[in-house]
């Protein structure tokens, strides 16, 4: 399967620094259509209005956490229900990973991470790309 690098990617994090980092790394990987949200509720509104090929979300945000956002996406009846979802978080306990997996996450990246890790996890979810 060929990965369309023109796909829309939604990144969600309450820290502006992290949004900029992920956006820049995605740009380096050739993904330029990147939208940003600063919490789960804002992100959920966005997925209802625009088709995204990938969601990359932090966990620890207010008012809606990344986990609740993931549950909202997976629990919906919209055509965005199965959008690939990568959780990028500092929460590194086993139970966090298990909970995210049970909620339907496709992959899980622990902060801090590097460009290579992001690429590897994206390829695991989307398929190979160069």
């Amino acid at each position: 399967m060929t990965v369309d690098k023109n796909m829309n990617v939604l990144i969600v994090d309450d820290y502006n620094t992290m949004l900029r980092i992920i956006k820049n790394l995605l740009k380096q990987l050739g993904f330029n259509n990147v939208d940003e949200a600063t919490d789960g509720s804002m992100a959920f509104d966005m997925v209802k209005q625009k088709k995204y090929g990938l969601i990359i979300s932090d966990w620890n945000m207010e008012p809606m956490t990344g986990l609740d956002f993931l549950k909202s996406v997976r629990g919906s009846n919209g055509d965005y229900k199965n959008t690939p979802f990568i959780m990028v978080t500092a929460e590194s306990k086993t139970e966090n990973v298990v909970m995210a997996k049970q909620a339907g996450v496709n992959n899980y990246i622990v902060k801090p991470f590097n460009a290579e890790t992001l690429k590897t996890k994206m390829q695991a979810v989307l398929g190979e790309f160069h």
Binding site: Y15, T17, R20, Q28, K111, A115
Partner: peptide, 20 residues
Amino acid sequence: INNEIIKIYEACSFQDITGQ
């Protein structure tokens, strides 16, 4: 230069971690 800039970007995630 670009590769080094990527490393700087990666290192900047310290702000998110220390902030949390």
